[in-house]
């Protein structure tokens, strides 16, 4: 078998734009799902009682439906329902956020619940309001404990952006697939894509691990 990796260099811009889109989509959906997930978790933990079953139903539904189906539904079915068409990138951002926010919410809940309830009671007994106690006592400890889980979720996010290729978002997976089909050199193109994903994902998982080891003591109580 002969390999000819010039197909990569001669399409550097095409693949490069895919890499940029993958990164932008990863960061954007990371931020939106983090924000949405926090709100959902706080609603579940401290919100009105009637809200809780709704939030739990949403979270468990997202654990049951494949992200591919969420993305395809958001891109193809949602415009029919609302009459608004979205460019693929925003459909992917929306779909990924709806999916990942449920996982963020679970991580936040687990983190908050891992802080002993006695701490909350002690803070309230010292005269803090519930909101103050959550902000000053519970959250700082819980946040540190959530870090490793957020790290793996970030790597899941990057991997999930590849599924957006199915709804024609021109990220790395999509560009590789197109180039592999046009150049008839799938081995070279997909090997390059694998390498790029590894280079993107390794620092994330390792970096979060290292960072956590440095701050882990702050989460102990």
């Amino acid at each position: 078998m002969d390999f000819d990796f010039t197909v990569i260099t001669s399409h550097a811009r095409f693949l490069g734009s895919g890499i940029v889109t993958t990164l932008v989509l990863s960061v954007a959906s990371g931020i939106t799902s983090l924000a949405a997930g926090f709100v959902i978790a706080l609603l579940r933990l401290y919100g009105a009682r009637w809200l809780r079953p709704v939030v739990v139903l949403y979270i468990d539904s997202m654990r049951a439906i494949p992200v591919l189906v969420v993305l395809v539904w958001t891109f193809f079915a949602l415009p029919i329902l609302t009459g608004l068409t979205m460019p693929p990138f925003f459909a992917a951002l929306l779909g990924l956020t709806v999916h990942l926010a449920a996982y963020v919410a679970e991580i936040v809940r687990a983190g908050v619940e891992s802080v002993r309830p006695g701490q909350m009671r002690a803070a309230v007994a010292l005269g803090m309001s519930r909101a103050q106690a959550v902000r000053r006592i519970v959250m700082p400890q819980a946040l540190v404990r959530m870090l490793p889980a957020f790290g793996s979720l970030l790597s899941i996010t990057i991997k999930d952006t590849a599924i957006a290729s199915v709804i024609a978002v021109t990220e790395l997976m999509r560009q590789s697939e197109t180039l592999a089909g046009q150049s008839f050199q799938p081995i070279e193109v997909f090997s390059f894509a694998m390498l790029v994903y590894l280079v993107m994902l390794f620092p994330v998982t390792r970096g979060v691990d290292l960072f956590y080891r440095r701050v882990a003591h702050l989460g102990r109580s």
Binding site: T161, A162, I163, M173, P186, L201, T205
Partner: peptide, 10 residues
């Protein structure tokens, strides 16, 4: 550390 969909295509 690889997206499953890439492994499927590969």
């Amino acid at each position: 550390n690889l997206p499953l969909i890439l492994v499927v295509y590969w």
